[in-house]
Amino acid sequence: MTDKPSDTNGKEGLSRRQFLKNSGLVAGGVVGGSLFGGLLTNQFQKKTVPNKKDMANLQDARMFFSRKEDFDILSAATERIFPKNDNGPGAIELGVPYFIDKQLAGSWGMNAKDYMRGPFTQNLQAQGYQDSKRNQDNQGPNTATQSPTPTPRYQTRLNRSEIFIIGLRKFDSVSQEKFGMKFVEATGDQQDEMLHMFEDNKINLTGIEAQTFFNLLLQTTIEGAYADPLYGGNKEMMGWKMKEYPGPRMGYMNQIEEKEFIIMDQESLKDYQTYG
């Protein structure tokens, strides 16, 4: 950090300690050091007291996506996958895009615990007409990765965060080509049409099957709606409320035989770790 805490002790400033205390971020587990530091720096450089509304959602900043454009495409796509409706909030309101952004910035997004050694060979059964010796390291596109054919599914040298960048930018180029406008400017139906093209593997992507990207997008959208709020999605446990899911609890020994459905108030992992 460039600021020293003493710099912020002016009339309108807050001490770092006070800031942390007010925002409740001290106990937050998920906020990474770099984002945290960045936020603090910006706040203190402006020397303004952040208003209450902003303080509540300080995690809602981009950690992985550098281009806002990419993030906006992601937001639009997740909202089509999990739209706001009579059941309750959609992906954007639930914080799903930020959830995905944080996931991609971390070890999962970098495939840290996956086997990522070469060669990344084409799968013979999915691409039987192609040269079996063809090697993705040299040739790139259209490798069978996740597909319905009998093949070990993840066979790309790209990691998940790279796949998202490629996939999201392709949404925009498909949209330009097909509808003459950016993906985020297209209508909901048009966006759905494009999502289906990815889902059905009708789009060629570099180094990855469109379907693999789509499945990742779908998986992470659902995860973001329903994972513990500590990861930045499922805001205010609204995803769990829709599902009548109570969150982590000590146990249900006295309820397990109960015939009626029991609706409970939601509790998060933070509640569980704080109060048991």
Partner: peptide, 9 residues
């Protein structure tokens, strides 16, 4: 067939 690595968890 050529076996491929099972890469992800």
């Amino acid at each position: 067939e050529i076996a491929l690595p099972v890469r992800t968890r």
